[in-house]
Every structure is written in C-alpha cells, then in structure tokens.
C-alpha cells in the first residue's frame, strides 16, 4: 500500500466571515443566500476589518449572529441615520445597512431618502420580499396588488391599501445616489448578477462617490404560503413589477455644483 492519497480539490467553501452555524431563517428563505453574497464580497474586497454594519428590525436583525463584523442595532427604519453617524465620525470605516422592505420602504422612508439625498458614503442592502416576515406575514409597502397577506386577507387592493412602492427607482433620481440597482435570488444566474451589483455598490463607497443601494428581490415561503421551490419560481412574477437591472451608475462624484454652461 504505497499509493499517496491526492488531497480533494476544494471547489466551494463557506466564506470565513460566515459563522459555522445554522440560521434561524425559515427553510428556503433568501436571507441566507444574501448573507453569503455579502460575506463573499466583503472578503474579496478585504473590507471586513473596517466594516461597521447596521442591523435592521425584522428577520435580519440576527444578521450579527452570522456575519462576523462589528454591528449596531438600529431602531426600526433608522439604519440610514445610524449609518450616517458612524460614517461621519469614522471616515475610514466601511459602513453598510442591511434592511428589509418594511424597514426601508415604510417606517424608514424619511431616513433612507435623506441619507441618499445627502449622498452619504454608505451602502444599503435592501432585501425586498414583499411582506413583514417576522411579525407573521402582514402587508408591506412592496406587497404586490392582489397578494394575500394576514392584513390583506382578500388580497391587496389599491383603493384601500395603496400601490406597491418602487423605492429604488425613487432613490435613483436623487443626485446624491451614485449607484442603484435591483437584483434577485431567483436562480443561480440572477444570484451571480446580484453579487456583482453588491460589489459595485461597495466600491462606490470606497471611491467616495456617494450613496449606493442594491435592492434584492427575495422570497418568504412561509409568509407567501408557498413551498421554497414555488416561492423561488414566483419571483419571476415579482420581477414583472420590480424590473431587474442597474437603475443608475454615476461613476463621478455628484457633490460639486455643476459649472454654469458657457461660463
């Protein structure tokens, strides 16, 4: 017996930034995928040692149990204001918020719009699964028309409950926003594109260009009343209301007033 065993070739492994534990997320939930993407990007850009992350209120508040970074909890919706305070006093830090759609598109609209309006050098990861997952599946501002939730038991009807709010499109028109894009975790090709968006949004902060946001369409199998596979397939319906792609990518800083034409 003289054969030498060849070591197995590693083709995939857990990013070191992710803790080696199972998450509290429901089976099939997209948060796990997004956590991994974020971990990969932070590792590739070697940002973890100077990252200060802001946790939301909602399912993802426990992100600090899975991503080994410095974290602070923000009150519901206030993460962009908290991130502003951090980034202003620690200009060498890398600051990101991780927010759901209830957090960012309902209770925290003022904070996200004004952080974007000021062009704060922060990166917002906006997970849109169209529902309040943690509280049991109520309507979110992003819930689709007709969608059944525990607070729209007969389906969201615009006359009573208003229309879905396209937050990222609204933010993209602000000059302080340097990068705004929408991805999805519906299948591996989309996941790959979403990772590239996250990376670009992180680099925008490093370049000092301005505020960057990536909206990520994700699923909530339990809240949607679907199996994990059904919920992933259903994302194609969600993508019709919230089109994927880069909404704005201003590579140059938009901080100086434009010079008068012909002057």
């Amino acid at each position: 017996m003289t054969a030498v065993a060849t070591p197995p070739r590693v083709i995939a492994s857990r990013p070191e930034l992710l803790t080696d534990r199972s998450t509290h997320y429901c089976p099939g939930c997209g948060h796990g995928i997004i956590h991994r993407l974020l971990a990969e990007v932070l590792e590739e850009l070697e940002l973890a040692p100077r990252t200060i992350a802001v946790a939301p209120v909602g399912c993802a508040v426990f992100a600090y149990d899975y991503l080994q970074l410095d974290w602070v909890e923000a009150p519901h919706g206030r993460a962009p204001a908290v991130a502003t305070g951090i980034r202003r006093v620690r200009p060498d830090s890398f600051v990101l918020t991780y927010q759901g759609d209830g957090d960012l598109a309902a209770i925290g609209t003022a904070e996200i719009i004004h952080a974007a309006g000021r062009g704060e050098l922060i990166t917002a990861i906006f997970v849109n699964n169209g529902i309040y997952g943690m509280t049991g599946g109520q309507m979110a501002p992003t819930t689709l028309l007709g969608q059944h939730t525990t607070s729209t038991p007969t389906g969201r009807e615009a006359g009573a409950a208003g229309f879905p709010i396209p937050m990222t499109e609204m933010l993209a028109i602000l000059p302080g926003v340097t990068y705004a894009a929408r991805g999805s975790v519906s299948d591996p090709p989309h996941i790959g594109k979403t990772k590239a968006m996250i990376k670009r949004a992180c680099k925008a902060q490093l370049d000092g260009a301005g505020f960057a946001i990536v909206e990520i369409l994700s699923n909530c199998p339990v809240g949607w009343g679907m199996t994990a596979v059904e919920s992933m397939e259903h994302l194609s319906e969600v993508e019709k209301v919230y089109p994927l792609g880069v909404l704005v990518d201003r590579s140059a800083p938009a901080r100086q007033p434009a010079a008068a034409e012909g002057a």
């Binding site: 923000a74 204001a81 908290v82 991130a83 305070g85 951090i86 202003r88 006093v89 830090s93 904070e111």
Partner: peptide, 18 residues
C-alpha cells in the same frame, strides 16, 4: 442638520456606538 429629530438622535446613536 438632520431631516428630523428621529434622524438626529439616530445619527447620534451611530456616532456614539463608535
């Protein structure tokens, strides 16, 4: 100068956390 007192105190929270 924050967008509201909510903004101001939460900016304070973030800065103080460092």
């Amino acid at each position: 100068q924050a967008e509201s007192e909510l903004g101001a105190i939460n900016m304070g929270l973030g800065a103080a956390a460092t």
